[in-house]
Design a protein around this nucleic acid. Sequence first.
DNA 1: CAGTTGACGGCCC
DNA 2: GGGGCCGCCAACT
Length: 106
Amino acid sequence: MEENSFERIYKVVKQIPRGTVATYGQVAALAGNRRWARVVGYALHVNPDPENIPCYRVVTKDGRVSEAFAFGGENEQVRLLMEDGIEFVDGHVDMKKYQWFTPQIY
DNA sequence: CAGTTGACGGCCC
DNA sequence: GGGGCCGCCAACT
């Protein structure tokens, strides 16, 4: 049972449904700890399996994508989100409508 | 082993 | 409403 922090984070990110986005803090909360927000960022930074881990669906609380996206630039991440049906306004997502709704597990 | 870093979040000005 | 500072936790050097 490898319950590493990263493993949990990756698992949560994989659970993000298409057409929705989740914030780092939310992923961290679903992973088990809200304060892992930065750890989540680091976890996605290593991103061992970008094919199975839709890290582009993870955005900041402001609804903005990470500027340090190393898979083709932030523009690439935005494009992928738009393909999922996410609407961008002035470079930011309408979290109010597209944020992944999750029952308060914690 | 200790210090610094980092794909963030929340509070303050 | 926008910008800046501090705080948290794990990984890296």
